[in-house]
Design a protein around this nucleic acid. Sequence first.
DNA 1: CAGCTATTTAGAACCATTATAAACTATATA
DNA 2: TATATAGTTTATAATGGTTCTAAATAGCTG
Lengths: 132, 132
Amino acid sequence: MKYIDKLRNSGLRPTKQRLQICEVLFNTERTFHFTINELEQKIKDRIDNKISLATIYNTVHAFEKKGYLKQIPVNSNQTYFDTNITDHHHFYNLKDGKLIDLENSDVGPINIKRKIDGKKIKSIEVLVKLED
Amino acid sequence: MKYIDKLRNSGLRPTKQRLQICEVLFNTERTFHFTINELEQKIKDRIDNKISLATIYNTVHAFEKKGYLKQIPVNSNQTYFDTNITDHHHFYNLKDGKLIDLENSDVGPINIKRKIDGKKIKSIEVLVKLED
DNA sequence: CAGCTATTTAGAACCATTATAAACTATATA
DNA sequence: TATATAGTTTATAATGGTTCTAAATAGCTG
């Protein structure tokens, strides 16, 4: 019951819906990027019962807050998430709106030399936009 | 008539509205970041006549396409633009949603080692999220 | 000036996301 | 095991940024 513990350990009740969403998000060979609409579709395809769109939003946000998902900053009308929560960056294909992981070794270390008083760095994200 | 030429040279008719928006965007000591709503407010403050919101959207998009503005990728419900079109990066203060320019020298060169067949890099953007 | 096309405009439409409030459920406690 | 309670789910409405529409207006070329 790996997801039950995962959820309980982070203070989230292991409800049927959350466990099912965990299956879709985390029980995979590879990590992946998604928008809420894409996730909704994936869930529909794999799950018998219906999960309300509001619950999908709630769950994704709860998981993000707990650090199980990352939001990727892109210019799009939809929000992109990533199940890969390790430090890494992205190509963004402007033509089809798809993201491609960039390993850290593909980018090299990024050292931010400037500091802002009273603030600390939460994340450093590189977005490489691709065109034809 | 610097803006008249600027517009004509890029195939945009120098209309009254576009020239006024140019004044607000480009006739400044410093470059700045803005959302459409913030720009709408700035225009209201500086211009007598009214410019329709649709025109502001149209103009900002036209200017972006011509390379006079850049969109900044952030996770926000609003789109952020930058009048600084030089290569540079950003701090993003999560608390108040404000952006701060990072000079290229504050970040160091970024060398993307990986290539995607048939695609070329349009831009490389680093977003450094700040928290308290 | 005439005629053509680009641009502006108010308002409607769109659509991702968030809020609401009622029904339901996990869980702790007795 | 029953019960209370706080957390969740849900359908639906509301919100709000952005885009669309179609009519009016304004640059521009001949």
